[in-house]
Structure formats: C-alpha cells, structure tokens
Design a protein around this nucleic acid. Sequence first.
DNA 1: CCTGAAAACAGACCCCC
DNA 2: GGGGGTCTGTTTTCAGG
Lengths: 153, 153
Amino acid sequence: MAVRLDEMDRKILAELQEDASQSLDEIARKVGSSKTPVWNRIRRMREAGVITRQTAVLDPEALGLEACFFVLIRTSEHEAEWQKKFLAALRARPEVLEAHRLAGDIDYILKVRVKNARAYDTFYQALISEVRIYNVTALLSMEEIKSTTMLPV
Amino acid sequence: MAVRLDEMDRKILAELQEDASQSLDEIARKVGSSKTPVWNRIRRMREAGVITRQTAVLDPEALGLEACFFVLIRTSEHEAEWQKKFLAALRARPEVLEAHRLAGDIDYILKVRVKNARAYDTFYQALISEVRIYNVTALLSMEEIKSTTMLPV
DNA sequence: CCTGAAAACAGACCCCC
DNA sequence: GGGGGTCTGTTTTCAGG
C-alpha cells in the first residue's frame, strides 16, 4: 500500500487537501510546475489510492449537529459473531463518524455527532439494545479546539 | 448559525459529501432538479457557511501514517494563560487531527495520526515539554472500523 | 518527463417562465 | 424559485520535443 511520493507529489497533495476546487493552473503555479505534469501526478495518485475521493466539508453546527461525544466501550464478549454484529451496527449508523478497535482495557472508541444530549441517549439506547456491551463511558465535547481532515504530507 | 434547509438542500449536501467532483448536471439529475436551481442552492449554502470547503480525502495508510492514537488528558492547570498555550500547541501540530475540551474528569481528548509508535512518542515528549500536563492515557487504535467525513444530513 | 495546442466539458450568469 | 441557453474557463487528451 505504500507508494513512493516525491516533494512535488506532496506539495500537490497539500494543495488538494487545502482546497480541492482550485484549477490545475492554479495548483501548477503554486507548486512551480505546469498543468499536464500536475494532472498526470494527480491521476497516478488517484489510481494508487493515495487520493481516495473528493468531498464537500460541512459545518456540523450549521446543520444543527451541536453535540459531539466520544464513547469508550468495554465489552465482555470477544467472539467473532458478536464482533461482526457490533461492527455492522456501527457502520450502519450515520451518527457514528469514527469507530476504532483499541489495544488495552478499553475495547472500542466511537466519535458520535448528534443534535443534542437527548439524541445521543436515543442512539445509546438503540445500540445497547442491539448488542451486549459491558461498560460504556461517554465523554461530552464542550469545545472543538481543532478538527481537520488534512493529513500531514 | 442554524440555517433552514429543505429536502432538496439535504439531498444536494448528501451528493456533495459523497462525491464533490460530480458535475452540476449529474447532481441535478440525481436529486430531480436542474442545473441552475442546484447551483443557486449550493451557492447559498456556501455563503451561509453550511458548506465550508472542498477537499481531497487521502488514505493515511498509503501515506505511511499507520498509527492512530486517541489521547486522554487530565491537567491540574485551569488558568487562561496555560489553556491558551496548550491550544496553540495543539493547533500548530499537524499530527493532531482532532482536539476537544471535554466535560467531566478527563479534560481533553486528541486524535493523533503518526507513522508509528516511535513517532507518537516523539510527539508526546514534545507536547509535555511544552505545556504542563497532569495525566495522559494513550489509546492505540488496532483497527479503523469506520472513519467518515460524511455528516448525516 | 515536459510543453503546447486542441477538443470536450462544466461552471457561472443571463433572461424568460 | 425553476428551466434553458450561452459564454467563458477548465479538464482531459494527444502530438511532438
């Protein structure tokens, strides 16, 4: 999965992360190249899977999604069948923006975006009724200090 | 900050989140409208701040960023001066993808993307040498079950 | 691997409904 | 507020160095 990227590739990626709506000419100018080579590099990185897709970033507050929770989950179940069901449940729920299986005594962490605390409770009740969970801690975000999709390239 | 959005707006947002490189005609066809109204709605939502920006989503693994940590931070310091310095430090570090101030006994949570455990340690040492922190727990992600930028609209 | 031209295409803005 | 057309600029392709 590792792809060789040179300095020029990285500059292009930085520009595309910053603003993917820029024209090729603009990107080419900024990275000190010209249209066609930039275009070829972008195509190559798309094909290599470095660039996954292009998306519009929305403001959660403007959409009324004003509550953000990080959910720490411990479970007593470690069978394949249970895990499969749990993962499917997480993937199916659009309010779950992130889900990771962890090393250590906490088994999973979720990032959940909802309208308010009440909506979180609805989500939580639905989740625990679907799959057996041993222990849950919800951390409520008071302030989003930083939230970026931009990876260091 | 709350904006009135109708069903058509939400459909357009869903399409733009799914794939922002689609043409207006394509989006118009999918949502059952035509070019101009779709374009006007997009412009309105951009101006209202619902659509923040447009970005290329990159694959962290392909970039060699194979380690992801969630960092739980407790601090004994709650002065404005300390907090200002801490926030600035987080914002300045590109490996910190998310940072939230929390309610409850854990004060902050970070999401940190790095090459490996060693790179995390470098980050960690740099951070604690910059600002005084009382207690840190790092949760290592073993598996990214889900990671999406798509908000439920 | 780059330059430059050319063709296909989509975005931005018009007027009319 | 939606529909259709048009101009302009951008993407994509390709020939040639």
